[in-house]
């Protein structure tokens, strides 16, 4: 028994348009299961999974969010402290690709990491099992996605299928490895969090959210 063992916790937020498969990606990775009966996500939820990365035991906390834009404003408290943001789009849906910029911007505004230029994002193009329905030809698509990623500071891109469990494990594995590497390099994305805790003693009332009533 190993009571003294310490686990690192990696918080990963999945964002993307409604119906691109955020819940399916999370469930495929954590539970290795696919269902086409998932309901539209309302609010936010997460699943955790323990993985071994190079002899480090890591708890991956994967956050699933609602895809409709208007619901984003409320749940942003959970963006804070994220170690990685996964942007997901549907390769058969061109609109979901076009929305990526706004999802990325939204995350950076709400989570406000210290160094937005270098905050780790990963792009997942989901539903490659539906090859025939691709919005653009597979080849052109990869090029498009890759050049978008390159323009965003070399964001890694994975083509995945939550349904057929293609590349999902590998993508999350890479996300975990990357986040761990950053952590040991001691680049805290949210240095102000620690300060906030101490300051809270004095300014709790002002931190309770800008409600208008």
């Amino acid at each position: 028994m190993s009571g003294t063992r310490r686990k690192a916790l990696l918080k990963v937020i999945i964002l993307g348009d409604s119906g691109v498969g955020k819940t399916s990606l999370m469930n495929q990775y954590v539970n290795r299961r696919f269902s086409n009966q998932y309901k539209a996500t309302i609010g936010a939820d997460f699943l955790t999974k323990d993985v071994m990365i190079d002899d480090r035991l890591v708890t991956m906390q994967i956050w699933d969010t609602a895809g409709q834009e208007r619901f984003q404003s409320l749940g942003v408290a959970f963006y804070r402290g994220a170690d990685c943001c996964v942007l997901a789009f549907d390769v058969t849906n061109a609109v979901s690709f076009k929305s990526l910029d706004s999802w990325r911007d939204e995350f950076l505004i709400q989570a406000s990491p210290r160094d937005p230029e270098h905050f780790p994002f990963v792009l997942l193009g989901n539903k490659i099992d539906m090859e025939a329905n691709r919005a653009v030809s597979a080849k052109r698509h990869v090029t498009m996605a890759q050049s978008w990623c390159a323009a965003k500071g070399g964001m890694p891109y994975y083509e995945v299928s939550a349904k057929e469990a293609v590349n999902v494990e590998a993508a999350f594995q890479a996300i975990a490895r990357d986040a761990l590497a950053r952590e040991s390099a001691d680049t805290s994305d949210f240095p102000e969090l620690e300060n906030n805790i101490n300051l809270n003693e004095n300014n709790r009332s002002s931190s309770s959210g800008g409600c208008n009533c």
């Binding site: 954590v30 699943l47 293609v166």
Partner: peptide, 28 residues
């Protein structure tokens, strides 16, 4: 090679060998 997966904290399919290469949508 990349590390191993410990599916604790989560339910697992019977056939856990399908970790990354095979589809896990087999009969459960």
């Amino acid at each position: 090679d990349s590390g191993h997966t410990i599916p604790s904290l989560s339910p697992k399919p019977v056939d856990a060998s399908s970790s990354s290469s095979l589809p896990s949508s087999g009969p459960l």
